[in-house]
Amino acid sequence: MRNKLAWVGTVITTIYLLGFTWFIFGRLPQLQTMELNSVGDFLAGAFGPIAFFWLILGFMQQGTELRVSADALRMQADELKASVEQQTALVAAQQRSLENHERSLEPLLQMKFTQNHQHEGDYYSGFSLANIGSYCEGVNVVLSIDGVDQYPITLESLYSGVERHFMLHDISEDSRKLIVEVNYVKVSGRMNHQSFELYTYHDEDGPGVSVRKVPMQDEEVITP
């Protein structure tokens, strides 16, 4: 566009100057006898149109360059937006990958009631805690009775396929809400927990406890 405007301006200016030269060629004696201020007015009037013409061409060229610059900026903005969207998708994919990896490190705990015990007039219920998932350590069991946590019971680390046993004191009353929370530290160093609900019952064999695992929600991980 710039070359085209320059070419048009040059051609028109050349034609104008040729016409102007032809127009004043026979009037040179008159110019020689004119006063200087009159000559200046004459030249200003003669070259004013061509100056105004080049001014218009300059505005046209500037407008064209501004449009080109605006289009380039718009393209850069679109590319930047696409790059941000790609980076966002990449970060989301990496986050999902990290979450899936973290879930793969989760131990799969199974808790079972074994049998009741009596010792010096106190009644205890025995349980086994098995792990069929990834290794975890720092294991402790907390019994919550009607929302009140009891002192934790510390267990040894749970390797995959390992089973630990522990006892809970006096949980035979049917009216109480019993929840066992197993806290642990995964191999990633993050803490989590799994919960189990306990339901006491009585049958012909005596009192017993049924265990139901509470489905895990999105874990609240804590880096110790």
Score class of each variant (00 low, 15 high):
1 M>R: 01
1 M>I: 00
4 K>V: 08
7 W>K: 15
7 W>C: 14
10 T>H: 07
14 T>V: 12
15 I>T: 08
16 Y>P: 05
20 F>Y: 08
21 T>E: 11
23 F>V: 02
28 L>A: 08
30 Q>T: 11
34 M>C: 00
35 E>P: 00
36 L>I: 03
36 L>T: 07
39 V>I: 10
40 G>K: 07
43 L>F: 10
50 I>C: 07
51 A>G: 13
52 F>G: 02
54 W>Y: 11
55 L>M: 10
55 L>C: 05
55 L>R: 02
56 I>C: 09
57 L>N: 06
58 G>I: 02
61 Q>F: 01
64 T>R: 06
66 L>C: 00
69 S>V: 14
70 A>N: 11
71 D>K: 09
72 A>W: 13
73 L>Y: 08
79 E>Y: 00
81 K>Y: 02
81 K>T: 03
84 V>R: 12
85 E>T: 06
85 E>G: 03
86 Q>C: 05
88 T>F: 02
89 A>K: 11
89 A>F: 08
91 V>W: 04
92 A>T: 08
93 A>V: 04
95 Q>P: 04
98 L>R: 06
98 L>G: 00
99 E>G: 01
102 E>F: 14
102 E>M: 15
102 E>S: 15
109 L>R: 08
114 T>W: 00
117 H>V: 08
118 Q>F: 11
120 E>M: 09
123 Y>A: 05
124 Y>G: 05
124 Y>M: 03
127 F>I: 03
127 F>H: 04
135 Y>K: 13
141 V>P: 03
141 V>Q: 00
146 D>C: 13
148 V>N: 12
149 D>C: 13
154 T>P: 01
158 L>S: 08
166 F>T: 04
170 D>H: 13
171 I>G: 04
174 D>M: 13
176 R>I: 14
176 R>N: 14
178 L>V: 12
178 L>P: 09
178 L>H: 13
180 V>C: 04
180 V>Q: 03
181 E>P: 00
183 N>A: 08
185 V>D: 02
186 K>I: 02
190 R>I: 07
190 R>V: 00
195 S>D: 06
198 L>E: 11
199 Y>P: 01
204 E>L: 14
205 D>H: 11
207 P>S: 10
207 P>A: 13
208 G>R: 07
210 S>V: 14
213 K>Q: 15
218 D>W: 08
219 E>I: 06
220 E>S: 08
220 E>Y: 09
221 V>S: 08
222 I>D: 03
222 I>S: 10
